[in-house]
């Protein structure tokens, strides 16, 4: 059964169509990537699926339920979890506490139990702490557990967000440029981590600029340009699509050319 179906999804900002009539679907354990040049609408699409923005048009179905425009915390309870391109870390909490907050749904009990530190509340907190440490190990941050999250490097924060998102034990995980700002070694680690997560049965929707990674791990790719879906299919098919080459790879080639020009201008 399909886990996520997106149909005719669209939104406008001040009359500009940031995303228009986008549709695709995703099965459990599958990795689907959304690619496209900067400003294509990938993050906006994520924001609509995860309830951060209310779609102006279209429908999102999660495990057979219409969840269009549902608040993020309700989607989290239905097994959807995500990371953010522009990090959304709980800065003044410790690294460990950031991940523990990901266990909120599992850990929460009555407020009275928390106020009076009843054994049930303490037991739940201990379990969350133990599992959070395991997740930190999984993303290679176990030694930073007690540090204030705000003091971590960009690449570490990216991995911290993944650990926090994994704490929800999601059915569907949305990763918005998880490897951005990471070095080659870190990128490869994240690459493996994503495959591992998918193997364990979690469906993954991925936005990533590292084409090598996208082509290698995705089952299916959706290409956006100017808010519209211009192509989709298997990596091998998409990478040969002339429209994709023009819109995406072409733009990259152009960027590169411009970069070289700028380089020349400096000399």
């Amino acid at each position: 059964m399909t886990l996520l179906t997106v149909e005719g999804l669209g939104i406008q900002f001040g009359g500009v169509k940031a995303v228009n009539d986008v549709g695709f679907s995703l099965n459990p354990g599958e990795i689907v990537s959304i690619i496209g040049p900067n400003g294509a609408g990938k993050t906006t699409l994520f924001n609509m699926i995860s309830g951060v923005y209310t779609p102006g048009a279209g429908k999102v179905t999660l495990a057979g339920e219409d969840v269009t425009g549902m608040a993020p915390f309700l989607l989290a309870r239905r097994g959807l979890s995500r990371t953010f391109q522009n990090l959304q870390i709980f800065q003044s909490m410790s690294v460990l506490e950031n991940v523990m907050s990901g266990f909120h749904l599992r850990e929460r009990g009555s407020v009275l139990a928390d106020l009076f530190a009843w054994p049930t509340a303490r037991r739940r907190a201990r379990a969350a702490e133990g599992d959070a440490r395991k997740l930190l190990e999984r993303v290679g941050l176990e030694r930073a557990a007690e540090r204030e999250a705000g003091s971590l490097s960009y690449g570490s924060l990216k991995r911290l967000e993944i650990a926090r998102a994994l704490a929800l034990d999601p059915r569907l995980l949305l990763l918005d440029e998880p490897a951005a700002g990471c070095n080659a070694v870190e990128t490869e680690e994240i690459d493996h981590l994503i495959e591992e997560i998918a193997k364990a049965g979690t469906a993954i929707l991925l936005v990533e600029h590292d084409m090598k990674m996208v082509m290698r791990i995705s089952k299916h790719i959706v290409v956006l340009d100017h808010g519209e879906k211009i192509a989709e299919g298997e990596p091998a098919v998409v990478s040969r699509d002339p429209r994709v080459i023009e819109a995406y790879l072409g733009a990259q080639a152009k960027d590169k050319a411009m970069g070289e020009e700028a380089g020349h201008a400096e000399h």
Binding site: P72, F90, H104, L168
Partner: peptide, 16 residues
């Protein structure tokens, strides 16, 4: 403390 840091992220981890 999480919602103090980021209401958006707090929502995505399931905090009402």
């Amino acid at each position: 403390r999480a919602l103090h840091g980021s209401e958006t992220a707090a929502g995505t981890v399931g905090i009402d």
